Amino acid sequence: MREVKAFIREKRANEVMQALRAEGFKSLTVSEAEGTGNYTKKSDSPSLRFPLAHSKMSKLEIVCKKEDVENIVQVIHEHGGKGEKGEGLIYVSEVLEIYKVRTGKLSKEDIEL
Rank of each mutant, 00 (worst) to 15 (best):
P51Q: 09
N38T: 13
H77C: 02
R21A: 14
A53L: 04
G35D: 03
T103A: 04
V101K: 11
E70T: 12
T29I: 09
L106Y: 08
H79M: 07
H77R: 13
D68G: 04
S107W: 08
V69S: 05
V75K: 08
K56N: 10
E97L: 12
E94K: 13
Y99P: 05
E70I: 09
K5V: 12
R12P: 04
V4H: 01
I90N: 01
C64K: 09
Y39M: 13
G37A: 08
Y99L: 13
V69Y: 05
G88C: 06
K105M: 10
G35N: 05
Q74N: 15
E67I: 10
G86S: 06
M57P: 04
Q74A: 12
L60W: 02
G104M: 04
G37H: 08
K82A: 12
K26L: 13
L106Q: 06
N14C: 01
V92D: 06
G37Y: 07
L89S: 07
A6W: 01
D44Q: 15
E67P: 01
E32K: 14
D44K: 03
I98T: 10
D44E: 15
S55W: 00
K56T: 10
N71T: 15
V95G: 02
G88K: 06
K11D: 11
T40Q: 12
K105W: 04
P51G: 09
I90H: 05
H77L: 10
N14L: 14
F50L: 12
V92Y: 01
N71V: 14
V69Q: 07
Y99A: 04
V95I: 15
K59F: 00
I98H: 02
K11G: 07
S93C: 06
N71I: 15
